[in-house]
């Protein structure tokens, strides 16, 4: 009995979890500011196509990721202008963002079907990366994996330890109070929305330049929605979101390895697992309605307008 399969399995979990980490951590900040952006799926897929198009035409993984972040940010800008300045319904606007993003990405991606990109370079530190077991697990990922961990650390620190983070939370808990002591609810929310968009874009970029370096229509396959569920699962805490993402990565791996281990189940049923797990997780986390209310930002989903 060997454990040869263990290291590749863990590496697969990491790659499956990383896009979710980006999207979920970004959305955590957005929701902490009291905004529910259901357009994560749309921003991710736009990030994916923008990154892939850039990767194919420039060959640079770095530029690709920047382009992904930019595309997510631009889509988030539409959402922000509509909900913050035009007072539009956040649920409806988020849905519109997803529909728009899926359509536009397919339109742009039309000419990129079948193109290939060699994928992001893996970290390779002579000596360290060659250590058995620990080497590939700790020193053998692509840059974005490390960046995802760093972003969780920064966001957790920002929200809990900085004055600006406190302001974001204050705007999400009680926008009227934050406004009345002189803070700009509008600016804080726009900032949070744009950050969330850029992060979702990077998550999408990870899918198209690292996870499976090619372009397929609708390739996000609901990961944006799973990220939204993860935010609820994590009770709006960045570290728990990170944990949740890895849990989902683990579920993805069952899918890939079950058939290899000779389990006689149709591929379709295995593919259902992440979605069913999402539902299960939501049920477990929201069944205690009092607790769910305490954790959720009090102004989540409510628009703010200065009434003179």
């Amino acid at each position: 009995m060997s454990v040869d399969w263990l290291i590749p399995a863990i590496l697969t979990i990491v790659t499956a979890a990383t896009p979710l980490v980006f999207a979920a951590v970004g959305e955590t900040v957005v929701e902490k500011a009291g905004v529910l952006n259901l357009g994560v799926e749309g921003m991710m897929i736009m990030g994916a196509i923008a990154a892939f198009a850039t990767a194919v035409s420039t060959g640079s993984g770095f530029l690709a990721v920047i382009a992904g972040a930019g595309a997510g940010l631009l889509l988030a800008l539409i959402f922000g202008v509509l909900t913050v300045y035009f007072q539009s319904n956040q649920v409806a606007t988020g849905l519109a963002l997803t529909i728009f993003g899926l359509g536009l990405s397919a339109l742009i991606g039309h000419s990129y079907v079948g193109k290939t990109f060699e994928g992001l370079a893996k970290l390779d530190i002579p000596g360290l990366s060659d250590i058995p077991v620990i080497g590939p697990l700790i020193f053998g990922h692509d840059g974005l994996v490390y960046f995802s961990v760093i972003s969780v650390i920064i966001v957790a620190w920002f929200l809990n330890r900085t004055r600006a983070g406190l302001l974001v939370r204050a705007v999400g808990e009680n926008h009227d109070a934050a406004h009345s002591i002189g803070y700009s609810v509008t600016l804080v929310r726009m900032g949070a929305i744009l950050f969330g968009g850029a992060m979702a874009g990077v998550g999408g970029a990870y899918l198209s330049v690292a996870y499976t370096p090619l372009w397929v229509e609708n390739m996000t396959a609901g990961r944006g929605w799973i990220a939204l569920a993860l935010v609820v699962f994590a009770s709006w805490k960045p570290w728990r979101g990170f944990l949740g993402a890895y849990l989902f990565g683990g579920i993805t791996i069952i899918q890939l390895y079950a058939q290899g281990m000779g389990v006689e189940v149709s591929a379709q049923f295995l593919s259902m697992l992440p979605y069913l797990a999402t539902i299960l997780v939501l049920v477990v986390i929201s069944r205690d309605s009092a607790k769910a209310r305490v954790n959720a930002p009090a102004c989540l989903g409510k628009n703010f307008h200065v009434s003179v």
Binding site: F86, F100, G103
Partner: peptide, 26 residues
Amino acid sequence: MPNAVIGVFQGMLLFFLLASDVLIRY
């Protein structure tokens, strides 16, 4: 033209609708 242009139209229409809905209450 690729068929996906439909989704772009539809999403755009909803954006404009949500934006002009602001005039109902403001």
